[in-house]
């Protein structure tokens, strides 16, 4: 095995476990917001179209 080159750049310092936990919580919050947006657009669409959406020939 050849030794690692001395001049190779170190990767950026990784996030600590606390940082990762914070980022995970942020991702969960983002997922909840996106889910909420889906529900929001669904309900608003129903309200905009109204009951007439069901009144059409099959």
């Amino acid at each position: 095995m050849s030794p690692a080159p001395q001049d190779k750049k170190q990767p950026p310092a990784p996030f600590s476990p606390e940082d990762m936990a914070r980022r995970n919580r942020r991702s969960v919050a983002l997922a909840l917001v996106l889910g909420g947006l889906v529900l929001f657009f669904f309900i608003v669409t129903l309200a905009k179209t109204g009951p007439a959406i069901l009144n059409r020939p099959l």
Binding site: P12, A13, R23, R26, A29
Partner: peptide
Amino acid sequence: DQITQADDGVALSSTGEARDF
């Protein structure tokens, strides 16, 4: 700086939580 910068000083990302946003 440590959290958000790579070796060359380029900002990567923060660890801000939802409440910070």
